[in-house]
Amino acid sequence: MSQVTQTTQLFPHELDVPYVEGDHEDGNALAGPLSEIFTVDVTSAEGRCVGCGVTGPVARLHVYGPGPGLVARCPDCGEVVLRLVRGGGAAWLDLRGVVSLRIGLGE
């Protein structure tokens, strides 16, 4: 027997649970995969997290993967900052967790 109810929150406690850090690397693991797309080293760029507003270098992100794809999370709030899927003759890059990136280009 299930309980049938109405609530405004779709799935309460979906995110509000304890976590154990799994195996992950730092953002330097993105250097090789992103070098296929960008001519600059994006791992030294400074980014601002959409989730919590903290700024920091891409190299500081927590990177999970490599399969099915690379998932880079904010080390402070855990939100997904960047996703990269490579396959089928293409790359899919999702930067939805980044407000902006400051990429040093020199003078």
């Binding site: 304890p18 976590y19 850090e21 992950h24 993967g65 997904v80």
Partner: peptide, 10 residues
Amino acid sequence: VLSAGPTPRV
């Protein structure tokens, strides 16, 4: 084991 983030302990 493949993961896209930390492991929830529910």
